[in-house]
């Protein structure tokens, strides 16, 4: 075993050296290309400043393509939802075109760190761990975790768990982190997208599905035969846009815009347009955060 470990450490060192050599090379070519569009910080995080985005005329925003009604692609192939409605407005206020990049939950941080997108607007819950990796703007939505299960076997508590029962979760979500830390004995079946997780749950996989409570409530309202047995789990969190760490020009601008949008009650309108159909007006005040001012 120790021998195996030594080999692994050696291998890691080898790959790292190769990786570093590669990075050095690409940084050099980046400089000589002199395209001015990419700003690097210590050659690690790559992002575009506000001016660079404006000059380019297009902003890249990472959204979900399969998380109805927050970020999804409708039957015409257009992006829709609460997050997308906000993203459209951001681009409009910035005076640029928007290019949507479809993301999975586990990719969101990487997409920012590698400069694939300028902003992540994919129902991204603010957590301390994530704050270390990306910069969050002001929040625009409240969220907690929830657990949905089938009507014939409603899960009301996670205590005294039967070890043969699995809970479905989506890789890279706060539900995964929460259950991994607080209920390490509950077997989790992990999926890499909302679409596949829902499909598997409908096919009879797992006894429950844990996710953002907004999401599981929407699921139980949209599909017959399901009940949200645990409507609120873990801490009450907020959802906010995120930018690459250090991209202060863009971050400050988003914050200003969110404050400005608060004056016209933009997110209430966003809720009316995108979420009323699913939730009714019942959740409006608990869900919407206006002007970046969370209730807590």
């Amino acid at each position: 075993m120790t021998k195996l470990k030594r080999w692994i450490v050696l291998g890691v060192a080898f790959v790292l050296i190769m990786g570093l050599a590669g990075c050095g090379k690409s940084a050099e070519t980046g400089k000589s290309a002199d395209n001015g569009e990419i700003s690097g910080k210590e050659g690690k995080t790559i992002y575009r400043t506000l001016d660079e985005i404006k000059k380019d005329g297009t902003i890249n925003i990472g959204v979900f393509s399969d998380k109805n009604p927050f970020g999804y692609v409708d039957e015409n192939g257009d992006y829709q939802g609460y997050d997308v409605y906000f993203a459209d407005r951001l681009a409009e206020d910035l005076g640029v075109k928007v290019n949507y990049v479809s993301t999975e939950a586990a990719n969101r941080i990487e997409y920012l760190q590698t400069g694939k997108v300028d902003i992540i607007l994919a129902n991204f819950t603010v957590t301390d761990e994530r704050k270390e990796e990306v910069d969050f703007a002001l929040p625009y939505m409240n969220v907690a975790l929830g657990v949905v299960s089938r009507n014939d076997n409603v899960v009301k508590s996670l205590d005294n768990w039967n070890k043969d029962d699995t809970i479905i979760i989506i890789s890279g979500t706060t539900a995964e982190t929460y259950l991994t830390e607080n209920y390490p004995d509950i077997p989790l079946q992990k999926f890499d997208s909302y679409a596949t997780a829902k499909e598997a749950f409908e096919n009879g996989t797992g006894v429950a599905w844990a996710n953002d409570n907004t999401e599981v409530i929407a699921f139980s309202l949209q599909n017959d035969g399901y009940t949200v047995g645990i409507p609120s789990l873990g801490s009450n969190d907020t959802i906010a846009p995120a930018v690459t760490k250090g991209n202060t020009t863009l971050l400050d601008w988003i914050n200003e815009d969110i404050k400005k949008l608060g004056e016209e009650q933009f997110f209430h309108k966003d809720y009316d347009e995108t979420l009323t159909e699913t939730y009714g007006d019942e959740y409006k005040e608990t869900l919407v955060v206006e002007g970046g001012k969370s209730a807590e």
Partner: peptide, 13 residues
């Protein structure tokens, strides 16, 4: 999937 999942959990890419 393990690698992808761990990146999503701990961000140690």
């Amino acid at each position: 999937f393990t690698a992808k999942d761990l990146i999503g959990l701990y961000y140690k890419t």
